[in-house]
Amino acid sequence: MIELLVVIAIIAILIGLLLPAVQKVREAAARMSSQNNLKQMSLALHNVASNTSDGRLPPAYGFFPKGTDAASNDWQQSGAEGPIYFHLLPFIEQGNMYNSAATGTSGHLGAQLQWAGKARTVKTYIAPSDPTNDTTKDLSSYRTNLLAFATPPANAGTSWDGPRLPATFSDGTSSTVAFAEGFAVPNGTTNYWWYSMDNAACPNGGRCNGPSYLATTTSPVFTTQPPQTALWDRPNAYNASGVQVAMLDGSVRSVTTSITPATWYTANHPSDGGVLGSDW
Results as ranks from 00 to 15, higher is better:
residue 209 N to W: 07
residue 216 T to I: 03
residue 276 L to D: 07
residue 52 T to R: 10
residue 88 L to C: 05
residue 102 A to M: 06
residue 87 H to T: 08
residue 80 A to R: 15
residue 240 A to G: 09
residue 157 G to Y: 00
residue 137 K to I: 02
residue 81 E to C: 12
residue 131 P to L: 09
residue 5 L to I: 05
residue 211 P to N: 04
residue 111 A to G: 04
residue 76 Q to E: 12
residue 103 T to W: 13
residue 123 K to L: 12
residue 47 N to H: 06
residue 43 L to K: 13
residue 10 I to P: 01
residue 21 A to S: 00
residue 278 S to I: 06
residue 92 I to K: 02
residue 122 V to N: 06
residue 148 A to W: 07
residue 233 D to P: 00
residue 256 T to W: 04
residue 268 N to S: 07
residue 200 A to D: 10
residue 4 L to T: 06
residue 135 T to R: 14
residue 62 G to L: 11
residue 55 G to L: 14
residue 157 G to H: 01
residue 21 A to W: 00
residue 6 V to N: 09
residue 262 A to F: 06
residue 136 T to F: 11
residue 17 L to H: 03
residue 162 G to S: 11
residue 8 I to W: 03
residue 3 E to M: 10
residue 162 G to M: 13
residue 85 Y to M: 04
residue 58 P to G: 14
residue 188 G to Y: 12
residue 22 V to W: 09
residue 201 A to L: 10
residue 209 N to I: 02
residue 115 W to H: 06
residue 78 S to P: 00
residue 160 W to P: 00
residue 177 V to T: 10
residue 196 S to C: 05
residue 255 V to S: 02
residue 54 D to V: 15
residue 139 L to I: 09
residue 109 L to A: 14
residue 164 R to D: 01
residue 36 N to C: 09
residue 144 T to F: 06
residue 107 G to P: 04
residue 127 A to W: 01
residue 268 N to T: 08
residue 201 A to H: 07
residue 51 N to M: 14
residue 14 L to F: 12
residue 175 S to M: 10
residue 125 Y to P: 00
residue 154 A to N: 13
residue 232 W to V: 07
residue 6 V to E: 11
residue 127 A to K: 02
residue 230 A to E: 01
residue 30 A to H: 05
residue 200 A to N: 10
residue 24 K to H: 05
residue 241 S to C: 01
residue 274 G to R: 06
residue 136 T to P: 00
residue 185 V to M: 13
residue 252 V to F: 05
residue 53 S to Y: 08
residue 259 I to W: 03
residue 13 I to H: 01
residue 249 D to A: 02
residue 132 T to C: 03
residue 183 F to C: 05
residue 106 S to F: 15
residue 195 Y to W: 06
residue 278 S to P: 01
residue 42 S to M: 14
residue 44 A to K: 11
residue 263 T to E: 09
residue 247 M to K: 08
residue 35 Q to V: 02
residue 208 C to F: 06
residue 161 D to C: 09
residue 184 A to L: 13
residue 77 Q to R: 14
residue 97 M to V: 12
residue 172 G to N: 05
residue 225 Q to F: 00
residue 109 L to I: 06
residue 87 H to V: 10
residue 22 V to A: 13
residue 161 D to T: 15
residue 40 Q to N: 11
residue 53 S to M: 07
residue 232 W to D: 05
residue 86 F to W: 13
residue 214 L to D: 08
residue 274 G to H: 03
residue 131 P to G: 05
residue 25 V to M: 02
residue 40 Q to C: 04
residue 94 Q to A: 13
residue 14 L to W: 05
residue 198 D to A: 12
